[in-house]
């Protein structure tokens, strides 16, 4: 297991998350894919932290997790508000700000 293996795994996970964000239509599924992308980046942070022998990467992962938690909470609240007002979870129907 070298750093390259971790980085390639991280890149694969990130790519799967990117494809999911584009393909999915359900807003909650898109949030799940965004969480997947955040985790891929966290994995590369920890890998670099291990191989550069510095603890700063792990601290960054900590902050990313905090931001991800806040993002998930606000995003899910937006999903609830969307469902309440438009009675849908599809992002194709949430086009009121489209010009």
């Amino acid at each position: 297991m070298s750093i390259l293996h971790c980085l390639i795994l991280s890149a694969l996970l990130f790519t799967i998350g990117t494809v999911g964000v584009i393909v999915k239509k359900n807003i909650i599924a898109i949030f799940l894919c965004i969480e997947l992308m955040l985790n891929a980046v966290n994995l590369s942070f920890v890998a670099f932290s291990r191989y550069l022998n510095q603890v700063h990467g792990q601290i960054f992962v900590f902050f990313v997790m905090v931001v991800a938690a806040a993002e998930a909470a606000v995003g899910l609240a937006i999903a609830i508000a969307l469902f309440r007002n438009r009675n849908t979870l599809s992002i194709d129907d949430a086009d009121i700000m489209k010009w």
Partner: peptide, 11 residues
């Protein structure tokens, strides 16, 4: 599990 292998038990 991979974090554990990378010696980041807290994370």
């Amino acid at each position: 599990g991979i974090y554990l292998l990378l010696e980041a038990p807290f994370i």
